[in-house]
Write a protein that binds this DNA or RNA. Structure first.
Length: 492
RNA sequence: GGCGUUUUGGCCGAGUGGCUAGGCAGAGGUCUGCAAAACCUCGUACAGCGGUUCGAAUCCGCUAGACGCCUCCA
């Protein structure tokens, strides 16, 4: 029987601002859409955190037995940079600077994005559609919204009429705003004279002469507006109403608010049942962002090539660091925090390796079933990975006590412990075991030989030689551990 | 200025109206030829001031700080 039938998953819904019991539209199936990256530069660690948060959601839904269609777009048509740059989107701008074809920029950074997510062990989504591949769908939606009188055309551009929409619907329902407030508080910017109101957002923008990315439309040559692509792609692949829509907290307004408005006009239904927002990664007390230069790239962490880092950290240690925080909490990035996470991560991996060395007994002195339930309870409570990890460390303690024979475990319980730990560590959290990568058979053989030689030296009370072997191996990052049952080692 | 979130022990980070989060770092102990590892024990917490309550770090109010959004942004 599928686990979702016995596990009651609760998800914090940004729309209701409360945890709700998750009930998919079609039993056993989940449709999930997550706003993907704009591929005009390398993804930074803050971007990665969001995608990792939803990777956790994706993985756990699958673990519960749901059949998940996970759609995450690639924004390759670019967003408008600001109104002063009217007609010029980010990707076109970058292309001009580098004197290359826009789609070459898109290709380069899409590849970088995929490589980075693969290193950090994110699962690929089920469908990864591109904005440029869905121009036709976007044009159709605009025509529909125009026909319904909720948009207007000016000089080859089409804008969504927010004030008119707000007469019958609540623009601001997701972000907790009232349009009346923002009417009084929105700063007037230049170049907005086309719009009836500053709150109106573009559905279609007329392309200036020099604009590189352009498509024909009923309103002339141009390109789609900021928020339309997600509406087009999510509803195309998941339906007019689907289960989960995710994205970074910073997209809640205006991006997701606009998506709701567009969908409601076009389909007359709420597009999303559960809105999920992942919180920001903080560096130097501020949100990581390309625009401010306050960011760190994933590769800089993996190579250690950044002045705030004392050394390189593996993708898994980095992933573990992020999983130790809840996805809805702000997380502070620092070298100290990463180091602490790395130490904890290695301790966890050590215990996983040691699972193989445990001897079974007739009865169990620890309650594995109860422990397993606590693991699921943690994840059922809005994907609470930090509490899950606390429970995994509880299991680390079990493993060590079992090795010392201070506790006993039955064969069936040991199997349960192994399966559950593997499931949560590898399948749900998506961590990888680095020690397996580092230690190959030849190395194992050499170290075992040295351990044997050291034992002979110790038996002869030749402490100088035995310590020399131990210390020199330590310098190489190989740590020897003398236990009651003999010496073991770990590779750092 | 508006809307929202947040403030936990040396550090990172959970959580709850009364019952140990966890990790890292630190102290003492067991073990050990010594060390490391492991295990056991321990410490200083819930920004400040009021209120509700038998009881609040947990609910409410005020004050102070921080962050996010209000413009592209994960």
């Amino acid at each position: 029987m599928e686990l979702y039938k016995t596990n009651q998953l609760k998800i914090y819904n940004s729309l209701s601002k409360s945890k709700e019991i998750f009930k998919p539209i079609v039993e056993g199936n989940v449709g999930m859409y997550v706003c993907g990256p704009t591929v005009y530069s390398n993804v930074h660690l803050g971007n990665v955190r969001t995608f990792m948060s939803f990777d956790l959601v994706f993985r756990y839904l699958k673990q519960l037995g749901f059949k998940v269609r996970y759609v995450r777009n690639i924004t390759d048509a670019g967003h408008l940079e600001n109104d002063a740059d009217e007609g010029e989107d980010r990707i076109a701008k970058k292309a001009r600077i580098e004197k290359i074809e826009p789609m070459e920029v898109v290709q380069r950074y899409t590849v970088d994005f995929h490589e980075t997510l693969q290193k950090i062990n994110n699962l690929p989504p089920s469908i990864e559609p591109t904005a440029t591949g869905h121009i036709v769908e976007q044009i159709e939606i605009i025509k529909d919204i125009l026909a319904k009188g909720m948009a207007y055309e000016v000089n080859g551009s089409v804008y969504f009429d927010v004030l008119k929409y707000n007469e019958t619907e609540h623009y601001g329902i997701l972000s907790g705003r009232n349009i009346e407030d923002s009417v009084h508080n929105t700063r007037e910017l230049d170049g907005q004279s086309e719009k009836k109101n500053p709150q109106d957002f573009a559905l279609w923008k007329r392309a200036e002469e020099k604009h590189i990315m352009r498509w024909p439309s009923p309103w002339g040559e141009g390109f789609p507006g900021w928020h339309l692509e997600c509406t087009a792609m999510s509803t195309k692949y998941l339906g007019e109403t689907f289960d989960i829509h995710g994205g970074g907290m910073d997209l809640k307004f205006p991006h997701h608010e606009c998506e709701i408005a567009q969908s409601k006009v076009k389909n007359k239904v709420n597009p999303v049942n559960y809105w999920m927002h992942a919180n920001m990664l903080i560096l130097n007390g501020q949100k990581m962002a390309k625009s401010t230069g306050n960011y760190i790239l994933p590769n800089e962490i993996f190579t250690g090539e950044n002045k705030i880092l004392s050394k390189a950290f593996s993708p898994s240690a980095t992933r573990f660091f992020m999983m130790q925080a809840h996805y809805r909490s702000v997380l502070d990035f620092s070298n100290d925090a990463l180091e602490a996470a790395e130490n904890g991560y290695m301790k966890l991996m050590e215990a996983l390796n040691n699972l193989e060395n445990i001897e079974v007994g007739k009865v169990s002195s620890i309650n594995i079933g109860e422990w397993k339930k606590r693991c699921y309870d943690a994840m059922n409570d809005d994907f609470n990975s930090p509490v899950l990890i606390a429970n995994l460390f509880e299991a680390v303690k079990y493993v060590n006590l079992l090795l010392e024979k201070k506790e006993t475990i039955s064969a069936a319980d040991l199997e349960e412990l192994k399966n559950t730990m593997n499931t949560f560590v590898y399948d749900v959290l998506g961590l990888q075991n680095n020690s397996e990568e580092n230690a190959c058979d030849k190395l194992n053989g050499v170290v075992e030989m040295l351990i044997k030689m050291r034992k002979e030296a110790r038996d002869n009370r030749d402490w100088a030689l035995s310590d020399k072997i131990r210390d020199e191996l330590a310098v190489l990052g190989i740590q020897l551990k003398d236990g009651k049952e003999g010496t073991t080692f770990s590779v750092n």
